[in-house]
Amino acid sequence: MRFADRVALITGAGTGIGAATAARLAAEGAKVVLTGRRPDPLNEVAAGLGDAALVVPADAADSAAMANVIEKAHERFGRVDLVVANAGGHGLGTATDTSDDDWKLALDANLTSAFVTVRAALPDLVDGGGSVVFVSSLAGLFAGPAVAGYTATKHALIGLTRSIARDYGKHGVRANAVCPGWVRTPMADIQMAHIGETKGLSREEAYTLVTENTPLRRPAEADEIANVIAFLAGPESSAVTGIYLTADSGASAVDLPTIALA
Rank of each mutant, 00 (worst) to 15 (best):
R2Y: 11
R2I: 04
F3L: 10
A4E: 15
D5P: 01
R6W: 04
R6C: 08
V7M: 04
V7A: 02
A8N: 03
A8L: 07
L9D: 01
I10R: 00
T11Q: 03
T11I: 04
G12M: 03
G12E: 01
A13I: 07
G14E: 00
G14N: 04
T15P: 00
G16K: 06
G16D: 02
G16P: 01
G18Y: 10
A19Q: 07
A19E: 11
T21F: 03
A23Q: 13
R24S: 03
A27G: 15
E28G: 11
E28P: 10
A30V: 07
A30I: 04
V32Q: 00
V33P: 00
L34P: 04
G36C: 09
R37P: 05
R38S: 15
D40E: 15
D40G: 12
N43G: 06
N43S: 10
E44G: 11
A46K: 08
G48Y: 11
L49R: 07
G50C: 09
G50H: 13
D51F: 07
A52E: 06
A53Y: 01
L54H: 02
L54N: 05
L54P: 00
V55M: 04
V56N: 01
V56L: 05
P57W: 11
A58T: 01
D59W: 09
A60K: 01
A60P: 00
A61H: 06
A61V: 06
D62R: 08
A64K: 12
A64D: 11
A65L: 07
M66K: 13
A67D: 12
I70N: 00
E71W: 06
E71T: 15
E71A: 15
E71S: 15
K72N: 12
H74P: 02
H74A: 13
E75R: 14
R76H: 12
F77D: 01
F77R: 01
G78A: 09
R79Q: 13
D81T: 05
D81M: 09
L82V: 03
V83T: 08
V83I: 08
A85P: 04
G89M: 09
G89W: 04
L92G: 03
L92K: 13
L92N: 12
A95F: 14
A95Y: 12
T96F: 11
T96W: 15
T98L: 13
T98Y: 05
D100P: 07
D100I: 07
D102K: 14
D102L: 09
W103C: 03
K104Q: 15
L107N: 09
L107Y: 14
L107M: 14
A109D: 11
L111N: 02
T112M: 14
T112C: 02
T112V: 13
A114C: 13
F115G: 03
V118I: 15
A120E: 01
A120Q: 03
D124A: 11
